[in-house]
Nucleic acid binder design. Structure first.
Lengths: 121, 121
DNA sequence: GCTTTACCTGGAGTGCGCTCCAGGTGTGAT
DNA sequence: ATCACACCTGGAGCGCACTCCAGGTAAAGC
């Protein structure tokens, strides 16, 4: 199963420009081409992009994703390091959620204060 | 109670440069000055910065904070609008947390997969 | 055969949110 | 009197992550 750039973009939620950019900076391995020079994304490529999607959506910087991508190219002996990267990131996500929740609570208190003091609606 | 720029920065977690920047773009009202022309943040200023801190930490863009700031300058008749802004943002935070959680789950699945398949550690 | 469409390349440009800099001033300690 | 210090201003610069553009190609539909 192969995917055109448009299909890969559709599947992964990245724009075609972003896919090209990711390849250019080495975040993606060189993507296979058709005879005409067009990209042909494999299922594995799309699967890897799915992981990148998770990492981006949870705020991992590109530089760190590059490190992860490099490890992924390294074969089975890098699995331990990959897991370490993901677990560190997992903890970061916990902290992010915690920050969001705490600040959300402050804002809710503020809303309540406005409601109580000014009788909104 | 007044605060020097350094104290305000300390209290709010914004850098002094950021405080100046926020004043420059009208996110803060013109801050009071000493005879020598130095800023003197009031408790109210610091309190307002606390709200900005919540909004920034939860990903509100500056442009929208400017709108909120403008409403805040508008007095009591804008309280309803302010509450509306905060509530819309509150929902956005809910969605953010939900996205983080979902993607975190995918990453955890990935970690588990690595562990199960490669027997890490 | 012609046009449209989807793609290609290298490189420039964008938006956001700061952050830094040069050059200057009033205040307080030694 | 001198020095360090915290602050001032306007404006330039930066890092990140794209996004857009000009100019070009190959294949598919009419």
């Amino acid at each position: 199963m192969f995917y055109s750039p448009a299909q890969a973009a559709e599947k992964t939620g990245f724009s075609i420009d972003t896919l090209r950019y990711y390849e250019k900076i080495g975040l993606l391995d060189r993507i296979d081409r058709t005879a005409a020079g067009r990209r042909r994304f494999s299922s594995d490529d799309v699967g890897f992009l799915g992981v990148l999607r998770c990492l981006r959506d949870t705020g991992m910087p590109i530089a760190e994703m590059q490190r992860y991508a490099e490890l992924a190219r390294g074969g089975a002996e890098t699995v331990g390091e990959r897991v370490a990267v993901l677990e560190t990131h997992d903890e970061r996500i916990d902290r992010q959620i915690e920050t969001l929740r705490a600040q959300q609570q402050h804002l809710r208190d503020k809303i309540r204060y406005y409601r109580d003091s000014f009788d909104v609606e």
